[in-house]
Amino acid sequence: SGLTSRIFARSTDAEARGVSALFVLGLLLAAPIWLLVSGEWPQQWVPSSPALMAVAGLLVGFGATYGNGCTSGHGVCGISRGSMRSITATVTFMAAAFVTVFVTRHLIGG
């Protein structure tokens, strides 16, 4: 989501916009290329409703914008740079994920 927002940001330089666009294009073309190479579509199973997925996607986009980066950006790039902001963000969203899974799986019974 951070890369996608960088494509449309007015303040992004042309090189960063191009790299971001190529990465997103690669994400979109990965499955069709797999089909050409293997002769079958990659198998994907998502145990959720399309409406829930859309809401989750919007929340992830909002969170990435609000947090100045996506989870993988903070977790991989930020931590490897030693960024305290990224380390704090990663600890925070991992703790929230642990609590969410515990509540939904063990307390609610989902």
Rank of each mutant, 00 (worst) to 15 (best):
T92C: 14
V24I: 10
V37Q: 05
I33P: 01
Y66V: 08
T100V: 14
L22I: 10
A31M: 06
P47K: 07
T104P: 05
T12Y: 02
G67K: 03
T90S: 02
R17L: 01
F8V: 14
S80Q: 14
L22R: 06
V99R: 09
L22K: 07
S1I: 06
L36D: 11
Q44E: 12
R6F: 00
V19R: 03
F98W: 12
L29R: 04
V99A: 15
M53F: 08
L107E: 06
V55H: 09
Q43V: 10
P32C: 02
Q44L: 08
E40V: 07
S86N: 06
G110M: 14
A54T: 13
W41L: 04
L22N: 03
V91W: 15
Q43A: 12
G61P: 00
L52N: 08
T90C: 09
V46P: 04
H106Y: 14
L28N: 10
V24M: 05
S86W: 00
L59P: 00
Q44A: 12
S1T: 09
S80K: 09
G61Q: 02
L36W: 05
A21G: 06
R105T: 15
E40Y: 15
A56C: 12
V76K: 09
G67R: 05
A89F: 12
M84R: 10
F23V: 04
Q44Y: 08
H74A: 05
R10K: 14
Q43T: 11
P42C: 06
T104Y: 09
L36M: 12
R85W: 06
L29H: 04
V55W: 04
W34G: 01
R10I: 04
G82K: 02
S86Q: 03
A95V: 15
M53P: 02
S86L: 04
H74W: 10
V99W: 10
G63V: 05
L58A: 11
G109Q: 08
S86V: 01
M84N: 10
F62E: 04
W34P: 02
I7Y: 02
A14D: 09
V46W: 14
A51F: 07
M53T: 13
F62Q: 03
A95L: 15
G110V: 14
G61H: 02
G73L: 00
V91F: 14
P32G: 01
G78P: 01
V101K: 01
V24H: 00
Y66C: 09
A97E: 04
Q43G: 06
F93L: 07
W41P: 01
V19W: 00
R105Q: 15
A21L: 08
T104A: 04
G61N: 02
A31H: 08
L22W: 08
S11V: 13
G18F: 03
L107R: 04
L22F: 12
T65S: 13
M53W: 12
F8T: 14
A14R: 11
N68T: 07
V99K: 07
R105C: 13
C70E: 03
